[in-house]
Each structure stands twice: as C-alpha cells, then as structure tokens.
C-alpha cells in the first residue's frame, strides 16, 4: 500500500495483521514509522513528558521541576498525556496536517490514540480546543475536532475562542501563562460534575489547555485533563 505521508509503496508484514487485525494495519511506511518517537517508560505524572529526555536533576520523584513549581501556584489541568515526542519529523508531519490542510494524515495515529485514551482517560468526555472563526474558516477544519473524532466517543463543543490566534502567538510564554481570557464558555454545555479530557494537537507549555481547563472548572466540571498528540 501507499504510505499516507511520504507516498512510497510499502508492504505490511503478515505478523502485524495477525496480531492486531486489519484495522490496525499501519498507514505509514516502515521508514516513516521509524521516525516517530512514542512516549514510553517513566514520565512526569502531571505533564506527561518522558523523564528519559531530560537531566535527572530536574526530576523530583514522579514530577518534573516545572510541574513542582507550577503546582505551588495551583493549576486546573490534573494531567496531560501525549502520544508522541514532538521531534523534527513530527513537526513537519503536523505542519502538513494543520497548515497545508492535509486532514487525512491524522488517521495514521488513530489506533495509538485509541490505546492511550483507553489507558488514561477511560471515563472522560472529550472537549476539543476550539479555533477562532477566522482561523477555522481559513483552515477549513479544526485539527482538535479531527483528533477527537478518531476516538468514536461523544465530544462536547463547550468552548469558543473569541480572539483571533494571530494576536496570541506573538505573546511571550509568560504572557500566555497569565492569559485566562483566551476562551469563553458556550452556555448550556453540560459539563457539571463531569470528568473532561481536553483535546489538542500539541502540548508545549500547557498554557492553552490550562486556560481552557480553568473555565470548565469554573462551570462545574469535576476534573479536567489534557489529551494531546505531541509533547513539545
């Protein structure tokens, strides 16, 4: 079959099909799959980054020192889990998905995301991070909705993004950490007492999901976590 990303022809080994069934047949060729780094092994309990990727001295038990610091200030997101390391291959891959608008690409991660969701977020409902109207029109789709859509679980359109993203990306990290007005709550959304998994493409500083989580908690959500494809 043809690799979804690089379009080269490849053969799936029989073993793969026998083990996982046709549904789990990989859509990417061996070379492309080889470029992906799955997050495995010991991770920070909170932000979900792999301990193997940074110096031991930034680790305190099962937390990274960023999270220890952040927890003192209080935070709304109980945990983040990402499927993949945001390496240079994945950066290009996600750029083709998001910026060039190649919606189909995200299907390559379907089974991986399903497995991660079942392991970590079982009883949560999905709330995709929204785009502004301008950005949504320009792109034609919202990448978070496409990601959430891979899971065959009901999703809730509980948030809106009144500001155009352009203004946001120019701000520094600190600015963004303090930014809580990024999103607004869509009145009537049923979040009360629910455990919610926010869905986004990339988790970098966590500021985006943090801002979204705060609003959901304010409106009565029991717990908010973050479910992302890539960990920057």
């Amino acid at each position: 079959m043809k690799c979804l990303y690089c379009k080269s022809i490849f053969v799936t080994s029989i073993g793969w099909r026998d083990l996982f069934g046709l549904d789990h047949e990989p859509l990417l060729c061996e070379d492309c799959r080889g470029e992906l780094v799955f997050i495995e092994g010991e991770i920070c309990r909170q932000c979900g980054r792999a301990f193997s990727l940074f110096p031991e001295k930034y680790r305190q038990n099962d937390l990274c020192s960023d999270c220890v610091e952040w927890n003192q200030k209080g935070r709304s997101i109980s945990k983040n889990r990402s499927l993949l390391q945001y390496n240079s291959f994945l950066q290009e891959f996600m750029a083709q998905f998001k910026y060039r608008g190649d919606a189909e690409l995200i299907k390559a991660f379907k089974s991986g995301l399903q497995t991660l969701f079942n392991k970590e977020f079982r009883d949560s409902i999905l709330v995709p991070i929204p785009l502004s109207k301008e950005r949504h029109f320009e792109r034609g789709f919202n990448q978070s909705v496409l990601i959430a859509g891979l899971l065959d679980i009901p999703m809730l359109d509980a948030l809106a993004r009144p500001l155009h993203e352009e203004k946001q990306s120019k701000k520094s990290r600190l600015d963004r950490l303090g930014n809580r007005t990024l999103f607004s709550f869509k009145t009537g959304s049923e979040v009360h007492g629910k455990s919610i998994a926010l869905v986004d493409d990339i988790y970098t500083t966590g500021a985006t999901v943090e801002a979204a989580g705060k609003i959901l908690l304010d409106h009565g959500a029991r717990k908010v976590s973050s479910f992302t494809v890539a960990r920057g």
Binding site: A103, E104, F137, G140, F141, V145, L146
Partner: peptide, 15 residues
Amino acid sequence: FATFSCYRCKEECAY
C-alpha cells in the same frame, strides 16, 4: 483524494 467535514462549505468536502 480524502474528505473532511469542511467549515467553509459545511459539507463533507473531498480534497
């Protein structure tokens, strides 16, 4: 060709 649910035309849109 692939399709996605398109915000521009509000349909399943092939690209």
